[in-house]
Simulated assay, not measured.
Amino acid sequence: MNRVQDLSILIKLTGERAKLDAKANGTYIVYKTDKGEIVREYANGEIISIKDPDIPHEW
């Protein structure tokens, strides 16, 4: 494999690990979708869009 493929695999594994940690700790992960939207994904599968990513703590 080349470096780009290796990096792609590591990024995917890191995201999967983050989901496991969030589930174990009762929290969520935050990421940017392919459409450029910032979202929170909870362990139960619920995905909530963050309306204004410039606000540090949106409740």
Score class of each variant (00 low, 15 high):
33 T>M: 10
39 V>W: 02
15 G>H: 13
40 R>D: 04
58 E>Y: 00
16 E>P: 10
14 T>C: 13
49 S>K: 12
58 E>I: 01
32 K>Y: 08
57 H>E: 08
59 W>T: 03
41 E>S: 03
20 L>V: 07
56 P>V: 07
36 G>S: 06
59 W>M: 05
37 E>W: 11
10 L>F: 10
27 T>D: 06
23 K>N: 11
42 Y>F: 12
54 D>H: 12
38 I>D: 06
41 E>A: 04
51 K>I: 00
23 K>A: 13
14 T>Y: 14
39 V>M: 04
57 H>F: 03
36 G>M: 09
29 I>W: 08
48 I>K: 14
55 I>H: 08
43 A>P: 02
14 T>A: 14
34 D>R: 12
7 L>Y: 15
35 K>A: 12
21 D>W: 07
36 G>V: 05
8 S>P: 05
32 K>M: 13
31 Y>N: 07
30 V>M: 11
16 E>T: 02
44 N>P: 03
33 T>Q: 07
34 D>V: 10
14 T>G: 11
6 D>S: 14
33 T>E: 08
48 I>C: 04
13 L>K: 13
40 R>G: 01
43 A>M: 07
46 E>F: 03
20 L>I: 06
21 D>A: 09
42 Y>M: 01
34 D>L: 13
15 G>P: 09
43 A>I: 00
6 D>N: 13
40 R>P: 00
46 E>A: 11
11 I>T: 13
18 A>L: 09
44 N>K: 08
51 K>W: 00
39 V>R: 07
19 K>R: 14
25 N>Y: 07
16 E>M: 11
22 A>N: 02
55 I>N: 03
34 D>T: 09
48 I>Y: 06
17 R>G: 05
12 K>P: 07
52 D>A: 04
48 I>W: 08
19 K>Y: 09
1 M>I: 05
55 I>C: 01
34 D>P: 10
4 V>H: 13
4 V>Q: 15
12 K>L: 11
17 R>M: 08
24 A>Q: 08
19 K>I: 02
48 I>P: 04
47 I>V: 09
9 I>A: 15
15 G>F: 14
58 E>G: 02
11 I>H: 15
41 E>I: 00
21 D>T: 02
2 N>C: 09
24 A>G: 08
33 T>W: 04
16 E>W: 11
56 P>R: 05
36 G>P: 09
23 K>M: 11
13 L>I: 03
26 G>L: 07
44 N>F: 04
21 D>E: 12
59 W>F: 01
25 N>V: 00
8 S>R: 15
40 R>H: 09
15 G>I: 04
45 G>Y: 10
57 H>I: 09
22 A>D: 05
8 S>T: 14
20 L>G: 00
